[in-house]
């Protein structure tokens, strides 16, 4: 009986060769698993990227298509006659250089105002206790929940006859000042957290600050810094990753925003505004006279326009993304 059991006893690894074989086997197993995971990951990522990129690539190819190819049914996705004429027309139709710089200016202004205000507010909600805090934070979510379309008319009237609690009205007969058709409406909305999806920025910043250990802040307070100073020199540097993400959203959404721009800056040359009417602009103004496009060719002009508008954003993202990865490694948050 004992002899029988001894058969199953694990043999001590006395032999070097046997030990090496065991290690090799284990390593092989780990390696197979690793390769399996890598292949799975690659397939998944490539598949998803394909899903996202396919329509964009189709657009990119079609933007290089000459007008004859559009009506040629034998031409598939890839153009037969490559041309840059669509871009030339879209460039003129968008009035690209001028629109680019004015959009850039508006975007920077918008982003700076919104992010500055939302960071302060988010920090206030994350770190202070005060009466009615729950209700007020509920209101932040509520501002997000109400789509701008619902309240745009009252908001527009508000800015048309802008007044601060009736003070300005005292001087000019109760009409207030007209802030529409100027960047001031954007500034006012930005610094009061009423811009597009600003509630989301407040929410994100608050979630971030709630996750930062309190010790950092307390140390600064004990050393004699006041709240603003603590915020500025201790909390803000550590918030770099979240601020990068939030500004990225703000930049993209101001860059492509047509809604607020149509209401408050109708007359300015801005990329988003120009893009929505690009096909007819190109037909009427660039080519002149009574030209009209049929839908197929108008589509190609639109594709070129879209590529011109989103290209700066993509380039910007590639740089900013690097920044936010590096920013975190230096931020020095220690758990």
């Amino acid at each position: 009986m004992i002899k029988y059991l001894e058969k199953f006893k694990k043999q001590p690894l006395t032999d070097d060769e046997e030990y090496n074989a065991y290690v090799r086997k284990k390593k092989l197993k780990a390696k197979t698993l690793d390769i399996g995971i890598k292949i799975f990951r690659a397939i998944l990522i490539i598949g998803i990227c394909y899903y996202i990129l396919y329509p964009l690539i189709a657009k990119l190819f079609s933007s290089f298509m000459a007008e004859i190819d559009v009506y040629d049914t034998t031409v598939g996705m890839i153009p037969r006659n490559w041309t840059l004429i669509n871009y030339e027309r879209a460039w003129k139709g968008l009035n690209y250089l001028k629109s680019f710089f004015s959009t850039l200016g508006l975007t920077i202004l918008n982003t700076v105002c919104q992010i500055a205000a939302c960071t302060l507010v988010g920090y206030g909600f994350a770190r202070f206790k005060f009466p009615l805090k729950g209700l007020l934070f509920g209101m932040v979510i509520f501002t997000l929940l109400v789509p701008p379309t619902t309240i745009i008319i009252p908001t527009y009237l508000n800015f048309r006859f802008f007044d601060i609690f009736g003070i300005i009205g005292l001087f000019n007969g109760g009409l207030g000042i007209n802030l529409t058709d100027s960047i001031w409406s954007f500034v006012v909305m930005g610094v009061t957290c009423m811009g597009f999806k600003n509630g989301l920025y407040i929410f994100m910043v608050r979630q971030f600050f709630r996750g930062v250990p309190k010790e950092l802040e307390e140390a600064a307070l004990i050393d004699g810094a006041n709240h603003l100073r603590t915020f500025w020199s201790v909390m803000l540097p550590s918030a770099k990753p979240i601020l990068t993400v939030v500004s990225m959203f703000s930049i993209v959404w101001s860059w492509t925003d047509t809604f607020y721009q149509e209401w408050f800056l109708k007359t300015a040359d801005l990329l988003a505004n120009k893009l929505t009417v690009l096909a007819s602009t190109v037909a009427n103004e660039v080519l002149g006279g009574s030209n009209t496009f049929d839908d197929a060719y108008a589509n190609i002009i639109k594709s070129s326009g879209i590529i011109l508008v989103i290209l700066p954003l993509i380039i910007f993202y590639i740089f900013a993304q690097k920044q936010f990865v590096e920013g975190i490694e230096r931020s020095g948050i220690v758990g």
Partner: peptide, 13 residues
Amino acid sequence: FILPFLIGLIGIF
């Protein structure tokens, strides 16, 4: 700290 939002809430929203 939350003053900007308060103004926006009461004044605009």
